[in-house]
Nucleic acid binder design. Structure first.
Lengths: 163, 163
DNA sequence: ACATGGGCGTTACCTTATAACAATTCGCTT
DNA sequence: AAGCGAATTGTTATAAGGTAACGCCCATGT
């Protein structure tokens, strides 16, 4: 796992984007009546601040350093809660987690993972999801949850490779 | 992992489908100039016979029982080879592998995983893939490899739940 | 024959993830 | 405000998944 890969390919004002997303996540949690306990909230903050995909154990290290429990279940439970409630995503290809950048928006995210710099972008995937639902319906299969992860070259690294 | 979940939802003549697929896989391997060694071939057969997603260690157990090496790398290398060359697929959501049912067809598979019976179907995903490529292109991202995995209810289990 | 490279077997180890239980806290009812 | 059930957290222990690295062997071509 690279140490400082940006979450989106575009430049952006990171302090704002993290704070804004946290605020929206909190609003969403309130709306759903979720208990955003200290551990859960802190895990979400950690993911937002890092702004990249993090392994559960990496998150755990930070929690432990801040006085929370230092055993795997502590991290896994908080992460599972966040994923379950749409405040974070799980990237199975990376065995990692990332904060959701659009909490509450009922989006169907598609993840674009750069094989060179490990950056992860959350792309809008409504059309993809629609196509998927259609393909599944043809087989009588009712889709409930989806993971769509693409590995390839991000625009930044593509320029590098072309050289 | 359930013990005997069918790969496709539809009934089918399994002995034929496994043998046919193996034949097609062999033709494809020949066409590509691949070395389908005993271990690799046997792993593919195991996956085809089981006709479901299997964990690497499960495959390894069978290999070991047949006199092949009994250490993880033996299974992982063969599985990686098969995946790399389009003769098998990796299901990240299940930490498992399944034989490709359409070797050489240049398909863009979408995997439908039933959350009740663990059956896995390989659905045609060309339209899904097209939508994905489009979404990625909007961000300047060049897709190379894709995992599309949907969890839900297969038609058989859906009838069961409705009852 | 002999060099070469790929594949295989093995050792050793690392990372990721979960089951199960005890202790605590929360939110609600009485 | 006391008390109760449910949810949450911390902890122990262990399961499950995966890989690096080395040496041997065997096929292949010279």
């Amino acid at each position: 796992m690279s140490d400082e890969a940006p979450l989106a390919f575009a430049r952006h004002d990171h302090s704002h984007c993290a704070a804004d997303t946290l605020a929206r996540a909190e609003a969403e949690a309130a709306r759903l009546g979720l208990r955003l306990t200290p551990v859960r909230r802190r895990v979400l903050e950690i993911l937002l601040e890092a702004h990249r995909a993090m392994g559960a154990y990496e998150v755990l290290d930070r929690l432990a350093a801040e006085g929370f429990g230092n055993q795997p279940p502590v991290a896994y439970r908080a992460l599972e809660f966040l994923v379950e409630n749409g405040l974070a995503h799980r990237l199975r290809r990376l065995n990692a987690f990332a904060a959701c950048m659009h909490p509450g928006e009922d989006h169907a995210p598609v993840f674009l993972i750069c094989r060179v710099c490990d950056a992860v972008a959350e792309a809008p995937g409504a059309p993809v999801r629609a196509a998927l639902d259609h393909a599944a319906a043809d087989l009588g299969f009712a889709v409930e949850r989806v993971n769509i992860e693409a590995v390839g070259l991000c625009p930044v690294c593509a320029r590098g490779e072309a050289a």
